Computed example of a mutant assay.
Amino acid sequence: MAGACFVLFIIVFLWSSGEIGSNIPLSRELGLSFMLKIGLISLILLHIADIREIILPAKKKNLEKISIAVAVVVIGSLAFFFGQGLLINYIIAALGATVVILGGVKKGITSRSFNVIGEINIWGNWSKIEKVELSTKEDVNFLGNWKQKIDPDNGEVAVLIHRKMAMRKEVHYYDKDDFEKVLSLLKEHLPAENIKIRDQASIRTY
């Protein structure tokens, strides 16, 4: 969803600035810009609603912070080079950057399930989770596969979320001190057989 909104933002932004579709009537350009603003404002409100529901926020990894920063810089660059001094373009850019930032910092656990970057969680998704694995002694790579850590436990709880029909596994990190709280929240909403706790030697069902 976030990727689609970002692409739509770029297309309409360039469209309204005259870089593409310059033969499109002005009324249509304004209509597209208005629809985009409404869409972005709606996403902002939905992201804020998700953030307010967070019970336990996930830790933000450096790669996630860098990705958010790069996306904001790209949007700011578009506004600077193609804004043509039009207030409407700067408003769209500000709204787009806000969507990216809010969508990137909303990871965590809520009563409705896990907040995932770029996805709206207003209806919840506990029923879509097949299995959740937790570990304090191993890490996961960027593909969502477990790998042995070279250095000792770094004080984080890695949570690997297997979702039905999902293209990828979702990974969250929490402070080690929050291990029992994470486990308690999972037990409230998932069957015991769907919760796995990993250690160096084995995988066991809670």
Results as ranks from 00 to 15, higher is better:
residue 20 I to C: 00
residue 21 G to K: 09
residue 21 G to D: 10
residue 22 S to I: 01
residue 22 S to H: 11
residue 24 I to K: 00
residue 32 L to T: 07
residue 40 L to I: 10
residue 40 L to G: 09
residue 41 I to W: 14
residue 44 I to E: 05
residue 45 L to K: 03
residue 47 H to Y: 15
residue 47 H to S: 14
residue 48 I to E: 07
residue 49 A to V: 04
residue 50 D to V: 01
residue 50 D to P: 04
residue 52 R to Q: 12
residue 54 I to N: 01
residue 55 I to T: 02
residue 56 L to D: 03
residue 57 P to A: 02
residue 58 A to K: 00
residue 59 K to Q: 11
residue 62 N to I: 10
residue 70 V to D: 03
residue 70 V to T: 08
residue 72 V to K: 03
residue 73 V to K: 00
residue 81 F to R: 06
residue 81 F to H: 08
residue 83 G to S: 00
residue 84 Q to Y: 01
residue 84 Q to A: 01
residue 90 Y to T: 11
residue 91 I to E: 14
residue 91 I to P: 07
residue 93 A to I: 00
residue 93 A to T: 04
residue 96 G to R: 11
residue 100 V to N: 02
residue 102 L to C: 11
residue 103 G to P: 09
residue 111 S to A: 07
residue 111 S to L: 05
residue 113 S to M: 07
residue 113 S to N: 14
residue 114 F to E: 07
residue 114 F to T: 05
residue 114 F to G: 06
residue 115 N to H: 10
residue 118 G to S: 14
residue 119 E to L: 14
residue 126 W to Q: 00
residue 127 S to A: 11
residue 135 S to F: 02
residue 138 E to H: 09
residue 144 G to E: 08
residue 146 W to C: 06
residue 148 Q to G: 04
residue 149 K to Q: 07
residue 149 K to G: 10
residue 153 D to L: 06
residue 154 N to C: 12
residue 157 V to H: 03
residue 157 V to D: 04
